[in-house]
């Protein structure tokens, strides 16, 4: 796209976040526009999870501001962030193992009041993820890793978020499942979803992202259109970084 860029839906302005004496993010800024997929890349310990947790209200920035559609978002509690339109697919999936698949999805809609629509959307999700439909009455803890990841994404969708934060959704999954998860994300984009995607799978992430930011030791070291980053520069940076997991 050329010309005047649209006002970003989510805007992170110079945030600094610390765990006690350990500063994990130093003045990080980024923007996400409506309908965009923005990737956040970087090696282990770069601060990617810290960034998402801060956006979700689980951590409070020491400095800086977060804006969602013109309203301040920093300093609010997680349950409030969900109501403002931020849904998280957390690192390690974190479905509720003792709740059934269907209960996990109902919980995703806990911030909503429109019960009729919720019912319909759960059914819609079951046709989107037939495996989850088959296992709707099963405890989520009995699902495979890939199925749990689908459920975690489905749970976030149930909140009808304006921005969905995904923390390494492909982590620990077999390649064929990773392919399915990325196909799902592409599908979500087709439906107009706005995604902020943290990934260690750089190639796959840059394939579907519009833009990307690279974090290293708590700072944004590079950012730009995914296509530009996919060639050259980033590859070189990454080759020098530990990809060990």
């Amino acid at each position: 796209m050329t010309g005047q860029p649209p006002r970003p839906l989510l805007s992170v302005d110079e945030i600094t976040v610390a765990y006690g004496p350990v500063t994990a993010l130093h003045g990080v800024s980024l923007q996400v526009s409506e309908g965009e997929i923005v990737a956040v890349l970087g090696p282990n310990g770069a601060g990617k999870t810290t960034l998402l947790r801060t956006l979700a209200g689980a951590l409070r920035p020491r400095h800086g501001q977060i804006w969602l559609d013109g309203k301040r978002l920093d300093g609010i509690v997680p349950e409030e962030a969900v109501r403002r339109g931020i849904a998280t697919v957390p690192e390690g999936r974190l479905v509720f193992p003792g709740l059934t698949v269907e209960e996990n999805l109902q919980l995703g809609a806990i911030s909503r009041r429109d019960r009729q629509a919720i019912r319909a959307e759960i059914d819609e999700l079951f046709s989107m993820f037939p495996i989850l439909g088959e296992r709707r009455a099963q405890p989520a803890g009995t699902l495979s890793g890939g199925e749990q990841q689908q459920l975690s994404i489905g749970r976030a969708l149930m909140a009808r978020p304006r921005v969905m934060l995904l923390d390494e959704p492909s982590l620990g999954l077999a390649p064929i499942i990773v392919g399915q998860i990325f196909a799902l994300l592409r599908d979500l984009r087709g439906r107009g979803a706005t995604l902020l995607l943290v990934e260690q799978n750089v190639h796959k992430a840059l394939e579907i992202a519009d833009r990307a930011y690279v974090l290293s030791v708590g700072r944004v070291v590079t950012s730009g259109p995914a296509r530009t980053l996919a060639t050259g520069e980033l590859e070189r940076m990454y080759l020098g970084m530990s990809r060990a997991r």
């Binding site: 689980a58 509690v77 969900v82 509720f96 003792g98």
Partner: peptide, 13 residues
């Protein structure tokens, strides 16, 4: 089961 994650999906603490 998981208080922090429950808040993350919108359960009011």
């Amino acid at each position: 089961q998981d208080f922090a994650t429950a808040r993350l999906v919108g359960v009011r603490a």
